[in-house]
Design a protein around this nucleic acid. Structure first.
Lengths: 386, 386
DNA sequence: CCCACTTTCGCAACGCTGTTGCCAAAGTGC
DNA sequence: GCACTTTGGCAACAGCGTTGCGAAAGTGGG
């Protein structure tokens, strides 16, 4: 069995090649040289992005990727030719030639993120680093019909475009409710049956003449957090007018085959409990929002924490992030309450190590729109669907 | 932005390269040519395995992988040289030279799977195709101490080894309870505190002089089912003396950073419900087993179904498989009951498409041991940790 | 039976990947 | 000022999948 020689690897690097089968035909997952280059380039680009304005040296890139310094030199050479990377000074010498620091050129590419919330539209223009360069907000009336909303959104996007000196990669759109990420079709928009099955991605792409990607708001927010540096696997729990989750597993957003993943609000945690709007009984969302409505934030946090603990146990994730308007109104209360439930359950199970941390999600009310822009940017850095 | 040219790919093939970063150094996820070859070889090998004794032609391999026919010829040529693949007749002509059929040579490699259950040890010898060539069972007394169990298990393994004419890849061990898959260390064995922190993998590997991998029984069972052909993402729910789950996401077992994923039995689904053995209240396991104890299988199935529906909603998986002694005692009842809850929830949510199917897991009482053997075999076919 | 055609599949040349060997450049420190 | 260390580019290289082409092995019409 000489086939084993390629298999004995350590765990981190084992997750190496899967994202890069670019350049091959449609069907399988076979990888060719173009795919290889694409993968390694994305990896280097992601490290440059993460390093930010501090920059990162070639040798450090080599260490982090496991590639040889010479390979990194070739890759960064191409990136510099394309204008995506640039030299940015040098580090202090350690007894020899000092390392040259490289950094990402943020202005080399841009993307627009659109957040269609229930009553407000928010559009941001971001550069490659994810920095918001321009922003616009306006009231949103879904009842005006799909065509009107598409037209109005398109105009808002176009108003921001002059801010993008570099190329525009495309537009990412995030909105609540069930939809098909792969096809860009909305399944249903609560309260507006005329939207059922609307092909938002294609409609907006045709109107703008640019690539468009559509995703759930919770997924966009989670992607934004992942790109912003939250490593490993985590859950973003969004408690606003509803309750939903975005799951990041191994750095990629987990959507499931039907973009249905993250259905957190209607997890049943009290069998035969009070009836929820969905028709079921004892859903987290109903229990949690009822507690909020009667002002009992401790109870709301405990309910949320129970659901979070179920999720943490099921997926063994590393971190829980909380967000949404309701959480933002009393962040400490929710973070402490959820953390307490998690700590209590971890104590009971006696698992070694520290309990799973709970934090308030960064990004605030702009997080979803920024994450929506990342729907177009993240693939450049090797982050695809989980 | 000429960087985009490598990025515009379709979704299926996008998942291409990640598993193959073999041959590089320790840290990152950079991929080199050896990794590329390793990945594509594993892909071809997996298709050969899946095709079974029917075999598969080179051109079909090319279509399925997205590689060119010539690349497939080179890869299968290497595999034939190494004795892993062989020609197996030819197909009917379609007007030209008939396609040559290739098949996996199952005897080219073997692995041993060990299932340490609470009261019984089960050892199987499998070939590359996963076929069980030899089997042994014996009573297991964990109270005899770690050294005695390791020694006894090692002897059982050695007794089966003569059945492996080809090379032995190693031994996979599956057992219940929390453990560290990456390090091969048991955290805790219920009822036997002397096992706490025992480095089972290293102890058995030293004794046998062969590679050993350790995993939870539910994960092994799920891996076995995945390799046996259950595609996509699914959950294996095991209801025996306890209740646990094995999660397969995108063809790979999802373990989480601490091998803790699949903690399903202690998901709380009835807040303030009856006290469970774990100290919490309203755990699925407690509710389900209590219902079984009082003979109310319909209630047990409903509880299990509620947990399954939570899981399906959270992860958007494609399939639920049921197994374990308790399920095996009344499979129809459980399958129907769980399916009914899933169908009801799907109906309420009004999601398009068929409801998620529920089936009895194949493999029966031997499934875990076979899955344990796959812990060693599956990496050859490109299946690594999710 | 022969010949044109189709289809499979291997050989050889090729382009491109990361790798290796080597050396110039650019510092430190005695 | 010189020895040394460290960085990083140039050039040659091995090996990957790809392309061009032709031999092999069938079918089917004349």
């Amino acid at each position: 069995m000489s086939r084993a020689d390629g298999a004995n690897r350590e765990d981190g690097a084992v997750a190496g090649i899967r994202s890069a089968a670019a350049g091959t035909a449609t069907g399988g997952a076979g990888a060719n040289l173009l795919a290889l280059r694409s993968h390694n380039t994305a990896l280097v680009l992601d490290l440059l992005r993460t390093a930010g304005s501090d920059g990162i040296s070639r040798l450090e890139l080599a260490e982090r990727t496991g590639l040889t310094p010479q390979a990194v030199s070739k890759i960064t050479g191409r990136l510099r030719e394309e204008g995506l990377a640039a030299e940015a000074g040098r580090r202090a010498s350690t007894g020899g030639k000092p390392r040259t620091v490289l950094r990402l050129v943020p202005g080399a590419g841009h993307a627009v993120g659109v957040h269609l919330d229930r009553d407000e539209a928010r559009v941001v223009l971001c550069d490659l680093a994810g920095t918001v360069l321009a922003e616009a907000r306006s009231a949103l009336h879904l009842g005006a019909g799909a065509d009107a909303v598409v037209e109005r959104t398109a105009r808002q996007v176009e108003e921001l475009l002059p801010g993008a000196r570099g190329a525009l990669l495309g537009v990412g759109v995030a909105l609540p409710g069930p939809l098909d990420h792969a096809r860009g079709v909305l399944h249903r928009v609560t309260g507006f049956p005329e939207w059922d099955g609307f092909p938002l991605r294609d409609a907006l792409a045709r109107r703008l003449g640019r690539p468009v990607v559509v995703d759930k708001d919770t997924n966009a927010a989670a992607l934004g957090l992942a790109v912003a540096g939250e490593g490993g696997s985590f859950a973003y729990l969004h408690l606003g007018t509803g309750l939903g989750a975005g799951l990041v597993i191994g750095g990629s957003v987990h959507r499931g085959a039907r973009t249905g993943a993250g259905e957190f609000g209607h997890q049943v945690i009290r069998l035969d409990g009070p009836v929820c709007g969905c028709g079921d009984r004892g859903c987290i969302e109903a229990l949690c929002l009822a507690a909020v409505a009667r002002g009992d934030l401790a109870a709301a946090a405990r309910v949320l924490g129970t659901g979070a603990a179920n999720l943490v146990g099921l997926l063994d994730i590393d971190l829980v992030l909380l967000g949404g308007r309701t959480v933002a109104a009393a962040p400490g209360e929710f973070v402490r309450g959820v953390a307490a439930v998690l700590a209590e359950r971890a104590r009971r199970k006696g698992t070694p190590g520290d309990p799973i941390p709970v934090r308030l999600a960064a990004g605030g009310s702009r997080g979803v729109a920024q994450g929506a822009a990342q729907l177009m940017l993240a693939p450049l850095f090797g982050r695809r669907d989980g």
